[in-house]
């Protein structure tokens, strides 16, 4: 019989993969796009380990070890490229590189955005409590530098 744990783990892997896919399709910050790619890799890892457990074979787990390795390499190289792109444009925006698009794709033009989403945060202020102790300067001359 098909075990329920395998079914659930595969579903969780699918959900994680889809979330990462939506993130990499929509988000415009290069770093968040890479985070979404890593999320897709996590979904794949969960599926591989679930199948590995189902078959009683450790090949899936070994493959996940390589996924981890390649993800580490990819993150190092990709972040270097992100830094290079940032030093050229001053933005972490994927749309800053839209001059590389195909000829027939229309140019993306941002609408005007208000400066911030909401009013600046209001931090709580502590009400002054207690009474400042009175000090006798003449009695304690050695404390004047304290």
């Amino acid at each position: 019989m098909f075990p329920a744990l395998l079914h659930d783990a595969l579903t969780v892997g699918a959900v994680l993969f889809v979330l990462g896919l939506v993130g990499i399709l929509t988000r415009r910050n290069l770093i968040v796009m890479f985070l979404s790619a890593e999320l897709m890799l996590q979904g794949i890892s969960v599926s591989l380990v679930a199948w590995s457990r189902y078959h009683g074979d450790f090949g899936g787990q070994a493959l996940v070890v390589f996924v981890l390795t390649v993800a580490a390499c990819e993150a190092a190289v990709a972040l270097v490229f992100v830094l290079q792109a940032f030093s050229r444009t001053g933005r972490l925006d994927a749309a800053a590189w839209q001059s590389l698009r195909d000829a027939e794709v229309p140019r993306r033009i941002d609408r005007e955005l208000p400066a911030t989403d909401a009013a600046p945060p209001v931090w709580p202020q502590l009400t002054p409590a207690g009474v400042r102790p009175r000090r006798d300067e003449t009695a304690e001359p050695e404390r004047e530098h304290v």
């Binding site: 988000r27 415009r28 993306r108 941002d110 989403d117």
Partner: peptide
């Protein structure tokens, strides 16, 4: 928040 963080494709 940069403008490109507040909109998405």
């Amino acid at each position: 928040l940069a403008p490109y963080d507040r909109v998405s494709n």
